[in-house]
């Protein structure tokens, strides 16, 4: 556990950037490292390009849902009047399993990377907002918040200057988990044909194309699968490492 905690940030940050760095320099090559798919396209370069989609989707969803969740969570955590209504709406959205929600939203629009990001963000935001609200509720009981209120500080200032910095640690940790699950969801959406359009190579797409041939040409499914799993694993370990590093309580428990 200590090993993971110490080395996860290194493992986690090195892996995704290494993939991205190779992406820039290497155009589709004639060497076919991973073989070719049924249309004769080089699988190796397709998998590398697929990294782009996964990383873009992962990071955008993490960023957008953190911002959205933060806004909603801070709002409903601090203004009690709105709390019940906002949280009931969030409960409702959360009670739709997130993959199903994303799939249903994708059915409304045409498949594009942007739409995938929006759909997954809508599915992930309520969870973040719940977390933020919980943190805000416990923080606003703290003495320094009372002190700030007594001093006559205006509410927006309290929220932004006193609550936000203290809530940030757990939000960053949550964002890494959201990033990991967004990459999985993107792959699943593409895999069942409701995600990234077929002409953009994404890991889910490549696997969906390999699906017809998987019993004879297993490698078409295998390579994107390995890349996807390793990337998600790296991000998850990064999350675990950050959690242990940022929260002293969790280190003791783990």
């Amino acid at each position: 556990m200590i090993f993971v905690a110490l080395f996860a940030p290194i493992l986690g940050t090195v892996d995704p950037t290494a993939i991205a760095a190779r992406l820039r320099t290497r155009e589709p090559s004639a060497l076919h490292w991973f073989g070719t798919d049924m249309l004769g396209r080089d699988l190796y370069s397709r998998v590398l390009y697929g990294a782009r989609v996964s990383l873009i989707v992962g990071f955008s969803v993490a960023a957008l849902s953190s911002i959205g969740g933060l806004a909603i969570g801070l709002f409903s955590g601090f203004f009690r009047a709105m709390d019940a209504v906002v949280m009931r709406v969030m409960d409702g959205i959360m009670s739709i399993p997130s993959i199903l929600l994303a799939v249903a939203l994708m059915a409304l629009t045409r498949g594009s990377v942007g739409n995938v990001i929006i759909a997954i963000t809508i599915a992930e935001t309520p969870r973040v907002s719940r977390l933020v609200r919980g943190v805000v509720l416990s923080l606003r009981e703290q003495a320094y918040v009372d002190a700030a209120i007594t001093c006559g500080t205006r509410t927006p200032v309290i929220v932004l200057k006193h609550i936000l910095p203290n809530a940030l640690a757990s939000i960053i940790v949550q964002a890494t988990y959201v990033c990991a699950s967004a990459m999985i969801t993107e792959a699943i959406l593409s895999f069942i044909g409701a995600g990234t359009p077929p002409f953009i190579p994404s890991w889910g797409n490549i696997m969906a194309e390999g699906r017809a041939l998987w019993q004879v040409k297993f490698y078409i499914v295998l390579f994107p699968a390995i890349f996807l799993s390793m990337t998600v694993l790296a991000v998850n370990l990064l999350g675990d490492g950050l959690r242990d590093a940022l929260d002293p309580r969790m280190t003791k428990a783990a």
Partner: peptide, 18 residues
Amino acid sequence: AVFGFSVPVFVVGYVLAY
């Protein structure tokens, strides 16, 4: 457990089936 979280369902499915 961490692997279980990180490997997508259909990847597990294909590997097990294979």
